[in-house]
Design a protein around this nucleic acid. Structure first.
Lengths: 209, 209
DNA sequence: AAAAATATCAAACAACTGTTTGAAACATAC
DNA sequence: GTATGTTTCAAACAGTTGTTTGATATTTTT
């Protein structure tokens, strides 16, 4: 049987879509299993609980993304500080995203919406889970920025990195709706790659303000 | 009876807090009424439904904010284009927020978290409601930016405005958690006013990149 | 003070939630 | 082909949800 058409992966596919569209609490297991065309009980059989399903949806994205990012970071870490600049670092951050998008259409926007929702879960289990398991990537990234900008204080870098993440997550999460508006208002149809390209000079300028 | 201690306003107070903390679907009417120390049925009596309660929570914030912003925008609209700059416009955007914060502690972060959640509700009733009722403010703001930056194309302004909103909402929504981290990591405790001050040069540089 | 309108209350409602169960179907190994 | 392990399925479970009800209390009007 095709690995992408097992009961388990069909549940993951349906769940990640619906979670991104409607949120975690607003998405019932019955809606997921109906969309995935599998039996209701199979979620608890394959994943144990709804909580674990949510975590597994994240894991599939994050392990893909952070392995791609890890390679990029390793490259950059071996470079000297005067070779580093914001644009290079930002491209390291987004290029694994574009890889995801190539493998599966709209996955950037789905991924970013999920991230936004996880972030909004200020006190929930999900935020803890994500930060515990993947927080070290953010740390590595912060260190690179510190190396690239020795004149900026550490907390300035901390904050600017968060401004950047805010722009990225917010814009890419809403990219479908926003490109729609741009298309009718400015008669300009954009791909997500183009949206990202537009964003890089903005963020670069801010970073070294 | 004190206007701020009616059943209705106690429900609004409890609801806005809990919605910001936990989300809309994750917050039951029973939790709200328990926190507000009122009877369960009073929500449906005073607001009609949970949906309307959510909208009314927004209305209280948005009418406060957008009336403050409206005055600022009127000022700016009467200025000539060479008097306008990004910093002025950004300050017009955030100064009504700081007024809210003065009236009630933590209201910026609550407000931004609510906005973030409303924004995440891509297909929900709330997003429609907010954009229908308050979308014109964003339009006015866009026009001012176009006036201030005649060399930028309209869609560039459109996108950069969204990057800015992303930074603002994302950072201010998480400002409590982030200032906590900054305090222990950098031994630096920050007020929200300071966070905003730090953000303005970043966004200004990006806007005129 | 009587009457009318407004507000509060405990209790019940139907609908929906995630999860469990035990039997049936299927696959794999001997 | 029988036995063993794995997966699917319909049905039921207990708990929570938003909402409604009708009685009681409170306030306002006359």
């Amino acid at each position: 049987m095709n690995k992408n058409d097992t009961t388990k992966s069909r549940i993951l596919d349906a769940a990640e879509q619906l979670f991104a569209e409607r949120g975690f609490a607003e998405t019932s297991l019955r809606i997921i299993t109906a969309r995935a065309k599998v039996n209701l009980a199979s979620v608890n059989y394959h994943f144990g609980s709804k909580k674990s399903l949510i975590q597994d949806v994240f894991d599939r994205f994050l392990s893909d993304y952070s392995s791609g990012l890890g390679a990029k970071l390793a490259e950059l870490e071996s470079e000297s500080s005067d070779e580093l600049d914001t644009e290079k670092l930002l491209r390291a951050l987004v290029s694994p995203l574009l890889l995801l998008e190539k493998k599966r259409k709209h996955s950037i926007s789905i991924f970013m919406r999920l991230l936004g929702r996880a972030y909004a879960e200020t006190q929930g289990h999900l935020r803890r889970y994500v930060t515990n398991k993947y927080g070290f990537v953010l740390v590595r990234f912060t260190l690179l920025f510190q190396k690239a900008y020795p004149n900026l204080s550490n907390d300035q870098i901390f904050w600017r990195l968060h401004y950047t993440l805010g722009s990225l997550i917010f814009t890419l999460a809403g990219s479908e709706a926003l490109t729609d508006i741009a298309r009718v208002d400015f008669k300009r149809s954009m791909q997500i790659e183009e949206v990202i390209e537009e964003m890089i000079p903005f963020l670069t300028a801010g970073m070294k303000a």
